[in-house]
């Protein structure tokens, strides 16, 4: 129990670090020196020290948005296993709670965006809910495949190290699921090619534009929840990769964290080498994830 709480706190501390890794990788590819690895920590601390400016249009709801979103993401983090160890809370069907908590976060982020009355933010909100329509079924179905393979319907059960033998025989399926989950991962974390985390240009923006009017402590909450969300989805991918790997607790943890860093590097490479998709093409891209998941599920019915 104490160990699990320690792990939880470790994740809370570590997760913003991955953004630094992504930015460094991108800087490396662009031939720049890049921002410090701990940049997101600096940003968050700077924001926490600021006062607040609110738009006259907004209501109290605007403040509730980031708070509820971050709480939802933190609660979701409690369900996520770490390095093959069961999570703090795990039960049959916690997959559903996990995805719906992220849905709660989305619900409040979207509403906070609509509260500003700005067209830009309305646009971003509208796109966000549209893309969620493809991402959520894809995520559900990918996890359903993993459920079918492992016979477990909880995240901790799926990713626990105990059931390796069944894992190996399903290789081709795992690749399909990984593909689907990677697309979901990119979309949910608003990375290229779905969204561009760096631009504020209204034609390209989805997630960034929704939080345009937030500042100070509220924005710090938002940035931090982005960091944790990255960890949440990263765990699903890295967890699948390291599934067959078994060793001591400490080594496993170290390997797991290294895996997350590697994932951040991969995301950096993807972002440096790919261009953002045309907005109308994004649903098409997300449907690919859905198709992969369905194909994997059908194959798993052998």
């Amino acid at each position: 129990m104490y160990l699990k709480i320690a792990q939880f706190i470790l994740i809370l501390i570590l997760s913003p670090f991955l953004f630094g890794v992504i930015n460094r990788t991108k800087a490396f590819f662009a031939g720049r020196k890049g921002s410090p690895l701990l940049q997101l920590y600096y940003d968050i601390f700077k924001l926490l020290r600021k006062g607040a400016v609110y738009s006259t249009t907004t209501s109290k709801f605007f403040i509730a948005g980031p708070i509820v979103s971050l709480s939802a993401v933190l609660t979701a983090l409690l369900l996520i296993p770490f390095a093959g160890q069961p999570a703090l809370i795990s039960f049959d069907g916690d997959i559903v709670l996990f995805i719906y908590l992220l849905g709660l976060a989305r619900f409040f982020t979207v509403l906070a965006a609509l509260d500003t009355g700005s067209s830009f933010e309305g646009m971003g909100a509208s796109r966000e809910v549209q893309f969620a329509m493809f991402v959520e079924p894809a995520l559900f179905l990918s996890l359903a495949v993993l459920t079918r393979i492992t016979g477990q319907s909880s995240l901790s059960g799926i990713f626990s190290n105990a059931r390796m033998s069944s894992w190996v025989t399903y290789d081709p399926l795992i690749i399909l699921v990984l593909g689907a989950l990677f697309i979901v991962f990119l979309a949910e974390n608003s990375r290229i090619p779905v969204d561009d985390p760096n631009t504020h240009l209204e034609l390209t923006m989805i997630h960034e534009v929704m939080v345009l009017d937030h500042g100070g402590v509220d924005f710090a909450y938002i940035m931090y929840s982005a960091g944790i969300k990255f960890w949440l989805f990263g765990t699903l991918l890295v967890g699948i990769f390291l599934k067959g790997y078994s060793c001591g607790q400490v080594t496993a943890s170290v390997v797991f964290i290294l895996g997350m860093i590697l994932l951040a590097v991969i995301v950096g490479i993807v972002e440096s080498t790919l261009a953002r998709l045309r907005l109308l093409k994004v649903p098409h891209f997300l449907i690919v994830a859905l198709a992969l998941a369905i194909v994997a599920l059908i194959i798993s019915m052998r």
Binding site: I287, A291, I294, V295, I298, M301
Partner: peptide, 17 residues
């Protein structure tokens, strides 16, 4: 449209299976 063709492709696979 492409999304529809893709989904039909998946359905074709389900049927074939």
């Amino acid at each position: 449209g492409y999304p529809l063709s893709l989904l039909i492709g998946v359905m074709i696979f389900a049927l074939s299976f």
